[in-house]
């Protein structure tokens, strides 16, 4: 096929810029990850996780748009790929909502299970030992 009319993005400079952007985004993600370890507040952790997800989507955009060259393709072709992926919007919202609802139902109607899931295991070492025993049994 003729590829004489294919668009060739911005070349070496574009690759360098996108590499820098991806690296910086990853470093920010990791910094947020490290920072999050010391935070106990539940709502703050959720907010940081939200920021990390947004950064993840930004990285995905740069990889698909520039490395995979999709941004320089013809618009109709982009649409045939991107529009079906919009199903993920429904997919994610519906399933996570369902999972959350299932958890609430279990906690409401299965008090025994809730109690078990809230019982702390005192000694961590003991947990490890039973695990080793289980591993040895396998052998």
């Amino acid at each position: 096929m003729d590829h004489t009319t294919e668009h060739h993005g911005g070349g070496a400079k574009e690759v360098r810029n996108v590499t820098i952007i991806l690296t910086v985004l990853t470093i920010i993600e990791l910094a947020l990850g490290f920072w999050m370890m010391g935070i106990d507040s539940h709502s703050t952790r959720i907010a940081v996780k939200g920021i990390i997800v947004i950064l993840m989507l930004a990285k995905a955009f740069y990889i698909v748009g520039y490395f995979m060259h999709l941004k320089h393709e013809i618009r109709n072709m982009i649409m045939t790929i991107v529009v079906p992926l919009l199903l993920f919007v429904w997919f994610i919202i519906a399933f996570l909502y369902d999972g959350n609802s299932f958890k609430n139902l279990k906690n409401t109607y299965d008090p025994y299970k809730k109690e078990v899931s809230q019982t702390k295991i005192e000694k961590k070492e003991e947990g490890k030992e039973t695990k080793n025993e289980a591993a040895e049994e396998k052998k």
């Binding site: 997919f91 994610i92 399933f95 996570l96 369902d98 999972g99 959350n100 299932f102 958890k103 279990k106 906690n107 809730k114 899931s117 809230q118």
Partner: peptide, 11 residues
């Protein structure tokens, strides 16, 4: 998403 659903359904 299966992973996320399970995680959302776990205490």
């Amino acid at each position: 998403i299966a992973y996320g659903t399970t995680r959302f359904a776990s205490n």
